[in-house]
Amino acid sequence: MSTQQLPAQLPIAKAINAGLRAAMADDDKVLLMGEDIGTLGGVFTVTAGLEAEFGERRVFDTPLSEDGIIGSAIGLAMAGFRPVCEIQFDGFIFPGFDQITSQLAKQTNRHVGSMAMPVVIRVPYGGGIGAIEHHQESPEAYFAHTPGLRIVSPSTAHDAYWMIQEAIASNDPVMFFEPKRRYWQKGPVDPSNSGLPLHAARVVREGTQGTLVGHGAMVGVMLQAAELAAADDVSLEVIDLRSISPIDFAPIISSVEKTGRLVVVQEAPSFVSVGSEIAAQVSERAFYSLQAPVIRVGGFDVPFPPAKLEGLHVPDADRVLDAVERSLGY
């Protein structure tokens, strides 16, 4: 992969932009498509400048149809292209749900392995931006439930830069969930070394008395909770999931073997969620290491509330610490 000159610190949105640029420069079969991604550069400016650089043939605004975007991306992939689709907001992916779950996810299996499906679907997701309805959802569990899809979510600029390139390089469909409220969070990017494979989880803080695991915007919340806990002499380990499907259980299990306690943190409602899957598998695989039941901290099982209530709905460090306290109480 080509190495570009990058500033020492990049916001996540710009890191994705740089990753897209690198992938497009490497492979002229890579296409970007979506609503308002061309001239405007996307409503979050993630594709800014790419239409000017690569032309309207490779970076194009589509008609306003998510079903149309995903369905035609499948056809483009069948024709040998590697489309990267932008869905403008989490809550607007559902008009494309049928194409994703019944078609995109199943083509390779239907074609008995003779057809790859290198389609990436980028989805800005999650709350915390004071938005109106449908602009703050965390729908990843719907897709994690569908065999045939790979699902990832970066939480740092470095991962954003590399994971988007790895997602595009994958011959399978990858859903790329971008924690939109962290788009402007800056971090270093090493353009010479990705560090970890696409589907690996990462221990981002070491600790001994409990483990926190989560993804996307919740990584920052977990780190904040761990910091607060440390002030109270409670040592927490924090794991950034990075990949939601498949889940890299090895670092989670070894962490639980060390700490004996696990709290799973997510923005999505807890009922039938990614956190539920982690809780179930950790109970199966590390039962004798657990000193407390796995506790999930998530959004409530309600439609994402109006902006004025989102502070109550989306887990914050206090909610995480409340769960840690309960866990330590066993």
Binding site: F300, D301, V302, P303, P305, P306, K308, L312, H313
Partner: peptide, 20 residues
Amino acid sequence: PLPTAESMFAHVYSEPHPVM
């Protein structure tokens, strides 16, 4: 008027729901 915390749960269903 600001929305109350309980309003998040009050109208998700028309009928009583144990999770709410």
